[in-house]
Nucleic acid binder design. Structure first.
Lengths: 109, 109
DNA sequence: AAACTATATAACCATATTGTTATTTATGCA
DNA sequence: TGCATAAATAACAATATGGTTATATAGTTT
């Protein structure tokens, strides 16, 4: 249920780029193929391709080949998962309890 | 209201690290000072200090000096903002409309 | 004032990220 | 079969990231 810190960080890294966020925003309107995305951005086709690959690795998008085109679609479920993960990060109460037992807790005033 | 792609990406970059996510999870339990966080992680004090500085830049935490200690607290409002931003990314319908006008839209089947 | 504790900053290094151009692979069609 | 188009991969370069150790700064205590 609760996602590991490493896993959450990996998905957030895939999200943490303006180009990839723009791609996701476009895919919210409709599925797009690579050759449609390229003219919208000021970067090369391989760059777009790599961004899509990064998003696919994080399962934020899915790809479907249609003839010579590869269409990408958004995986809204994954985005919902990451929003949920940010609200429900793994619990670290135990770590703070150990800190207290080791007498390393700082108390002031 | 709607946050720019660059701005959202900056905040997501600050979040996209397992150590910083752990720090935020700890601060959800209670405010902590740097010297309490250090023994919980297997990294140096300056490393923790830099992570906190990164979180502060993104306004995900706030700092308060109490005597010789600096206590950090979580800014839940900022986290709520980023969750909202992921649900409401800036609209790019116009970009797709221009694509159609330029005849670059791909239609198959 | 001097010594101690807590935190931040500087300088540095290894690796990751994000772009490029050149090339390869996959599909469609004359 | 051979050529055109779409997309992915390879090789490379510049910059960002995340760690280190050494040092500076801020506050406390003797």
């Amino acid at each position: 249920m609760t996602m590991e810190f490493e896993k959450i960080a990996d998905i957030l890294k895939a999200l943490a780029d303006p180009t990839r966020l723009k791609i996701l925003s476009l895919l919210r309107i409709r599925d797009c193929c690579v050759c449609e995305l390229v003219p919208i951005f000021n970067i090369s086709q391989p760059a777009i391709s790599k961004h899509l690959s990064r998003l696919k690795m994080a399962e934020l998008v899915r790809e479907t080949r249609k003839g010579q085109w590869v269409f990408y679609s958004i995986n809204e479920k994954r985005l919902e998962e990451i929003r949920y993960a940010l609200s429900h990060l793994p619990d670290l109460s135990e770590e703070l309890r150990e800190l207290e037992q080791q007498g390393l807790t700082v108390i002031c005033e």
